Amino acid sequence: MMVMKIKTSVLILLCLALTGKLQAFEADTAGGSQLPGPFRVLPTPRKVEILPGGGLSPEQLRTVVAGEGVTRPVMGAFLNPLPYGAFEEDGALTLKLSTASNIPESVEGYILTVQGGSASVEARDQAGLFYGCQTLEQLLEDSRAACAPVPACRITDYPEMSYRAVQIDVKHHLDNMNTYYESIDRLARYKINAVVFEFEDKLRYRRQPLVGAPQAISIEEMAALTRYARKRNIEITPLVQGLGHASYILKHQQYAHLRELEDN
């Protein structure tokens, strides 16, 4: 099934990322700490510091405060429902764009601070704010599952690789479009930033409609999914097979004259 293939691809990528980052993570946290048992962030952050004081439970968050120049990013089940707030206060998630020297240089880097019933994300770019919020969503999921507050901590993170892609091959099996939207949400949570869609005859080609299979994805459906993905820092790239894999075209009698052996 396609969903299983997507999950398998994500697991493989995450295993590779975790293996590659393990040494750097241990070096960074040698003088600091790791998150306690029930809390896990994937991929593993570059640096985790445990801070003094109380942490954060999901029910403590009440508002989102957006700093100057900040566009509120797409969040998740815990953070999306929060209304805007005007002031930094207890129970606020504060989002800030900053060029301070301690902020990672990567546009996807961020610093997430959780302490005293509040949280903040600082980054140089909107992409970093998005990923900081995704990390907080993971921690809040663990908090609710473990019935324990997120510990007071500061997480500094940025990607090892600028291009982190998953391929979705739909040429042999199509799911309904909701499945792909859900997959985009899950991939974004784990900081995948690119998806390669392999189509063959599973796209309705406007100029050559005969090529598209029954129930193929329309251009409009794919455009809508692409817009949805971009809001989650994922770029979708279409993969259309070349001449070496053109049987999905040449099987039609209308294109028989293009075959190497026309009667084959």
Results as ranks from 00 to 15, higher is better:
Leu258Thr: 02
Val195Leu: 11
Val196Arg: 07
Ser218Thr: 15
Pro238Ile: 08
Thr226Ala: 15
Ser247Glu: 14
Thr237Trp: 13
Glu235Leu: 14
Asp185Ala: 09
Ile236Val: 08
Ile234Ala: 00
Gly212Ser: 01
Ala256Ser: 15
Leu187Phe: 01
Ala213Val: 03
Ala216Leu: 09
Glu200Val: 03
Leu250Lys: 07
Glu198Trp: 04
Ala216Val: 09
Ile249Phe: 01
Glu221Gly: 10
Ala213Gly: 06
Glu200Phe: 06
Leu258Ala: 04
Arg259Gln: 04
Ile249His: 04
Ser247Phe: 08
Arg232Phe: 06
Ala188Arg: 06
Leu250Trp: 08
Arg230Met: 11
Val196Leu: 12
Ile217Asn: 06
Arg189Ala: 12
Val240His: 13
Leu203Ile: 15
Arg207Asn: 10
Ser247Met: 07
Arg230Asn: 12
Gln254Asn: 14
Tyr205Gly: 08
Ala216Ser: 15
Ile192Tyr: 02
Ile236Trp: 04
His252Leu: 15
Ala224Met: 03
Gln253Gly: 13
Ala216His: 07
Arg186His: 13
Glu221Pro: 07
Lys191Leu: 12
Val195Ser: 05
Ala224Gln: 13
Val211Ala: 12
Thr226Tyr: 02
Asp201His: 04
Tyr228Gly: 03
Ile217Gly: 07
Ile236Glu: 04
Ile249Asn: 03
Leu243Met: 14
Ala188Met: 08
Arg204Lys: 14
Gln208Leu: 14
Arg189Cys: 14
Leu203Lys: 12
